[in-house]
Write a protein that binds this DNA or RNA. Structure first.
Lengths: 153, 153
DNA sequence: AACTTCGTTCAAATCAAAATGAACAAACCG
DNA sequence: CGGTTTGTTCATTTTGATTTGAACGAAGTT
């Protein structure tokens, strides 16, 4: 099917398959579609469609339009693919890296105590390793805004 | 626990929890550990440990050492964290992007036929969208080697 | 050769994420 | 109002990924 491309794309970013299917269908469709078309064309449930569209709207990846003489919401793909990617970086990666900071600090503390108590050379080596990790952590955090900026133009 | 940091880290890259636990334990341990220590300290099964270590070795993220008068393999974390990240980019992202090329081409073909048949302006618009996608695809493929290079120093 | 220790493999169990669909709420229409 | 259409919610089911542990093989020891 022609939405396969989108399915595999969103999955790289940890989003469920149905999101890819819906976005793909809308991307490829010449005019905006109501929810029941999405349900019937993709063969997914009303629930999935509703939830999927809600997420895609929240990402700004689809928008809804009003069509004259039709009460139903009609959905359209926003061509701005970068929103999905940006969402991944900012909502999935960024928070984890930040949470990681605190935990690294805790590890550091543990290692320092261990070193003081055991005075082993091994413990000192561990301390050095953790410091190296912290550098990496910082490096990663710097990379993200760079990538996001690059994707945005 | 102090390996939490690593668990959450590897999960960003779609690797199982046990991988993070094992790598974390080795990272934090002052000297190389045999498999049964890993099993008992983390409370995971022999199977998990064996499989996890095999994967980590294949990534080059851990190495094994021989310790005199001990038959068992002893494992040590390779500090080179970038291997895990590089592995993610090269084995998980890259192939998908490449496979995507072919599927995009198929979509393009479908869209061209649709345009010829229906001659609708909608169909032409779809064609344009897909072309835009192809640009993005190329852009993404260029980004990866950049990131990898940046991470490697 | 029989026995132990170390490690791998793989079918089955477990667990978590996603999809389903029935029940519900809101908007519209006669 | 009663009836219909549209869309959301959420408890249950399904599905896929991870983990387990029993069985096995390889190597070492007596």
């Amino acid at each position: 099917m022609s939405v396969d491309f989108f399915v595999s794309f969103v999955q790289v970013f940890g989003l469920p398959k149905s999101i890819g299917q819906i976005y793909g269908l809308l991307f490829v469709s010449a005019e905006p579609l109501p929810m029941d078309d999405i349900v019937s064309q993709l063969g997914i449930s009303k629930g999935s469609a509703s939830q999927g569209l809600a997420l895609l709207k929240s990402l700004g990846a689809v928008t809804s339009q009003t069509i004259p003489a039709d009460r139903r919401e009609h959905f359209e793909a926003d061509l701005n693919v970068s929103r999905i990617v940006t969402h991944f970086f900012e909502n999935r990666l960024q928070p984890r890296l930040e949470h990681g900071d605190r935990r690294l600090e805790e590890m550091m503390e543990l290692a320092r105590t261990a070193k003081r108590e055991k005075k082993g050379d091994g413990a000192a080596a561990v301390l050095t390793r953790i410091q190296a990790l912290q550098k990496w952590q910082k490096r990663g955090r710097n990379l993200i805004p760079m990538v996001v900026r690059w994707l945005k133009r």
